[in-house]
Simulated scan of single mutants.
Amino acid sequence: MIISVPATSANLGPGFDTLGLSVDLRNRVEFKPSRFFSVSIKGEGESNPRLKGNNMFVSIFNEHYQRLTHKKQNFKFQFYNSIPLSRGLGSSSAVIVSAIATAHEAAGVRVSKRRILNHALVYESHPDNITPAVMGGFNVATVEKNKVFSQKKHLPDYLRAVVVIPDKPISTAKSRTTLPKSYSKENAVFNVSHAALTVAAFFNEDWEMLKIATQDRFHQKARMKMMPELFTIQKTAYEQGALMSTLSGSGSTFFSLCYDEDAAGLAARLEQRFPQFAVKILNLDNHGLTVER
């Protein structure tokens, strides 16, 4: 049995801790009962021995498997990781979601995606990454009484994501310390209006509106100052026709959305300007969490 979860890009400019979408870059875990517990990692993180010995997936899996079955069972886990670690593409959310889903499948308990999403909230209090990881597509989400309430928009196949992945991370915890302790009413109104306009643009498929809608005054500039090259990435993306260009989560990845026919040119220009960084053209994902039996 294989569980897979897509990468995500959160915030999307003004939608701080609220907006996110998923892209077709997946982490997969294959598992089966075994006489002995074992973990094998291929792809991202395979050279990091700490991930085998102190594995967040295994910890969450065991917690839920024992809750569901009231017994212990050894499993062999084989991870195939494509999502870069600590780069703002939802690698932690992918681990959390896949661990919970895998535990339910291993226990033989069918559960809705909404239930998995609410379980994931225990480990990740912000719903902007975990929601698209589970649901796929573009999502706006909020939390009320320890539950995620969200709406999803299916993304058309004529759009592409172009992501620039720097060679070093930006710590989410550290980047949050750079943010203001309070915001002026003017800036709060600016972000509320732009986040609302971003949601409307996605649901109405008014892609030309996104360049205006995705402006932000809450977090992006402060975080981007930690890696000044990000300002040039954004400027270059817009010069090459990106529909929107925003910091992915807390960074360091930068996410741009464009039409299919513009993706190759945009990616080539970014590769030329930033040869030290990885540039990927990705399809958007509408499936979210998937189970292959």
Rank of each mutant, 00 (worst) to 15 (best):
L247Q: 09
T236K: 06
N187L: 10
Q78F: 07
H154K: 00
K211W: 08
T178D: 12
F202R: 01
P84E: 02
T232S: 15
G249I: 03
V97K: 06
T290F: 09
Q78L: 10
A222E: 01
T102N: 12
I116R: 02
P127S: 13
A213V: 04
D24G: 12
G45F: 08
F254G: 04
P6Y: 00
A94M: 07
G241A: 05
K145P: 09
S125V: 07
E44M: 14
G249R: 07
L21A: 09
T102W: 08
F254C: 12
E186C: 00
D260L: 03
W207E: 04
L89A: 13
A278Y: 11
S92W: 07
T236G: 09
S34Q: 06
K225F: 00
H70W: 11
S22T: 12
E105K: 15
A196L: 10
A264G: 11
S150H: 01
A222H: 06
K174A: 00
A99R: 07
Q276S: 10
Q78H: 10
M224E: 10
V134D: 02
E144W: 07
N204M: 03
Q66W: 14
A161V: 02
L159C: 02
G249N: 12
H287I: 00
S93H: 10
V140M: 06
Q66I: 08
G249H: 12
K52R: 02
H70T: 14
K235D: 04
V291F: 12
A242W: 11
D128R: 05
P49R: 01
G45T: 00
A173H: 06
D157F: 00
Q272W: 15
M1S: 00
S171T: 06
E63Y: 15
A103I: 04
L85P: 13
N187Q: 10
T214C: 00
Q66D: 14
D285L: 09
